[in-house]
Amino acid sequence: MSHCACFTLPDGTVGIVRPNPVLVVALLAPTVADAMAFLDHRKQGLAATVVTPLYRAMVARTEQEAVRVVAERDARRLALARGLLPDDAAALTVMEATGLLAPDASRRWRNCWRRAGAGAPAVDMPLARAQRMSEVRRERTARLAASDSAIMTAHEQNDRARTTALTAYRQTLRDLPATTRPTVEACTTPAQLEAWQPTWPVDPTA
């Protein structure tokens, strides 16, 4: 199956419906009875009461249409399950599955996929950069926590040199988001951002 369907939730999140490929092939059958026979042969356990409305909703017997009718049904059900209105799964568009992943094949920035209208999803770079900075801050906070015991010990032992080194190290960590932001902002593509790494200060106790 080369197609999937894309929709947008009210918070801008992009949903991608991937219909059961056997169901899609079945919906291309010349009659609904043939479709049911095919599904039974492939042991899909899908009842005629489910398949028949989908079959009849198709305006053309094509894969794109089959993907559309299944995706519309399931996107609406997803919206209702999440306490939204059925039409909140809006701007449903059938598109090539391969092209969908092209901008972010690794799904590294999947949370940052956004769409303009009914267009294909793309990585929203400001969101992606914000996600990366959030990750940097989370890592920074962990490194600060890891050095807590070391600086307390230095204070207790009145080791001024060690205290000074640790203090400088920790200050560099605190400043890291601000100092690295310009380089993050310079990343204009998902690939550049995925390759970007901050320059972490060296832990004096390591």
Binding site: L9, V14, R18, N20, P21, G45, V70, L78, N111
Partner: peptide, 17 residues
């Protein structure tokens, strides 16, 4: 990615993140 390999009484998988 939500691509179904095998299933029973399943119409789709939706990937929302």
């Amino acid at each position: 990615a939500g691509t179904i390999a095998a299933s029973y009484n399943t119409t789709s998988i939706t990937d929302t993140g």
